[in-house]
Design a protein around this nucleic acid. Structure first.
Length: 433
RNA sequence: GUGGCCUUAGCUCAAUGGUAGAGCACUGGAUUGUGGCUCCAGCGGUUACGGGUUCGACCCCCGUAGGCCACCCCA
């Protein structure tokens, strides 16, 4: 183990892995564009207050997992690395007066997030998220549309066994009363509860519902359900979201235990859950409505809903399901030479190819021709351009490394020749994807 | 943050407490103008790091770091 290594919970994405990432990022960008979400980028760090107020000061994310940046001077602001995208995007919405744009404002972003969690497979301290936000539309239809967008992403990526969990967690009008009802259900049994659960009863009663402790099952089974305690408007909204999803043909299951960890969520909460796999994190993404967040961060009361998908976990799931990764794009041409010393000639030929838009590498070393061709073949390059004696007459040998055929070509025709040969290749055998 | 399992070459793995090895990969040669195969050779290790026990430690003990599993939480 070297002395210097990537920080705990972070990792390098190596060239052998990046094609799969590029594929997912393109999928995300295409999808966002197709649904009318426009790209936004916000800083990787913000004033800590953005997250303390936006995510919630008493959430695990802020209390335990926030990467704080030590101030350099006494008058410095307190900064923190973003643990999630929504708070920063909403801050940008307010800062740039986006309420004067036609509503809703639909924004999309893909990038790294940071949480000081204990690492595990699929759980990293720096992880990537694809995120979309629709700010300024209170209606249930946009909820359904965004849930369907996430669903579509998994379909496009080729991932199977993803289920949608859906719930409503009410709003300021009905949730406080429900939480009190819920707490009252558990409180008589507080003494017998495991320590962890007793703690939850005090701090976050909603969390009791999704306890994994088997001893909690009987109490949980009889616990009041939030969906039976929604106020009229929330009930109506929730029913409409379900009706819209059904109309879109998107299947989902109602999960009364689904509560999102962030304070700002209201009403619709949803999650994409990987069925039937163990040994990695199964929540691939989720989101929900945050009708109070804009106001909380200093804007006018404005509704909003968002979705975040965890690209790291999705990639792990794709690998586990044996979905073939995107092919590493092969180099088109390698310029080799019979005279190991004639580096300048090889460079010139490579430059001609690159000017014509053909990806090319020149052999810059002094190895003999056989070794040069060997490494070109191992790279799976399509063509070898051999610079030899004919170069003096303005000609080179072009060797098709797949077919083995070789042809003398005038340098003036070189790019055209390779383009034509490659086009006929693509007709013959479809490129793997 | 709590508990458990793990860590030997770039990768996958060997090695009774007694001289650290193989396969793959990489580099060169067989082949001075023709490739992926084959054969040969080379490169590559403070056995994660730091202590301890022992005549002697990859092996036993302690600590640290990192990975993984469960919890917690969540993407």
């Amino acid at each position: 183990m070297p002395n210097l290594q990537a920080p705990r919970g972070t990792r390098d994405l190596l060239p052998s892995q990046t094609p799969a990432w590029t594929r997912l990022e393109r999928l995300a960008a295409d999808l966002a564009a197709r649904y009318g979400y426009r790209r936004i980028e916000t800083p990787l760090f913000e004033q800590a207050a953005v997250f303390e107020r936006g995510v919630g000061a008493v959430t695990d994310i802020v209390e335990k997992e926030l990467f704080r940046i030590a101030p350099r001077t006494e008058e410095s602001e307190s900064w923190a690395l973003r643990p999630e995208p929504t708070a920063g995007i909403v801050r940008a919405y307010i800062q740039h007066g986006m309420q004067t744009l036609p509503q809703p404002v639909k924004l999309a972003m893909t990038g790294p997030m940071f949480r000081h969690d204990r690492p595990q497979a699929g759980r990293y301290r720096q992880f990537w998220q694809f995120d979309v936000e629709a700010i300024g539309d209170p209606g249930p239809a946009v909820d359904a549309e965004i849930i369907e967008l996430g669903h579509r992403f998994f379909a496009d990526a080729g991932l199977a066994d993803v289920r949608i969990h859906l719930n409503s967690i009410g709003d300021a009008a009905c949730r406080p009363a429900y939480i009190e009802t819920l707490a009252a259900h558990y409180r008589p049994h507080a003494a017998e509860l495991p320590a962890v659960e007793r703690e939850r009863l005090e701090r976050a009663p909603l969390r009791l519902l999704d306890s994994k402790d088997p001893s909690m099952a009987p109490l949980n089974a009889t616990a009041p359900r939030i969906t039976d305690h929604l106020c009229g408007p929330c009930r109506e909204h929730f029913d409409a979201v379900q009706a819209h999803l059904a109309a879109l043909g998107v299947e989902f299951s109602l999960e009364p235990g689904l509560v999102r960890g962030l304070d700002y969520y209201t009403r619709t909460a949803f999650e994409y859950y990987l069925e039937g796999r163990q040994g990695q994190q199964q929540a691939l993404g989720g989101g929900g409505r945050y009708d109070g967040l804009v106001e909380l961060l200093g804007g006018k009361p404005t509704p909003g809903i968002g979705l975040g998908l965890g690209l790291d976990r999705i990639l792990l799931a794709l690998e586990a399901q044996g979905v073939p990764p995107a092919a590493d794009p092969a180099l088109t041409a390698v310029v080799v030479g019979a005279d190991p010393a004639a580096t300048a000639d090889r460079l010139r030929v490579a430059t001609i190819l690159r000017s014509a838009g053909i990806p090319a590498r020149a052999e810059l070393g002094q190895r003999k021709l056989g070794k040069q061709l060997e490494s070109a073949a191992k790279e799976r390059a399509h063509f070898a351009v051999i610079v030899g004696d004919e170069f003096a007459d303005g000609q080179v040998q072009v060797k098709d490394l797949e077919a083995g055929a070789q042809k003398l070509v005038a340098i003036a025709d070189l790019a055209r020749h390779i383009e034509r040969a490659q086009a006929s290749h693509r007709h013959g055998a479809p490129v793997e994807r």
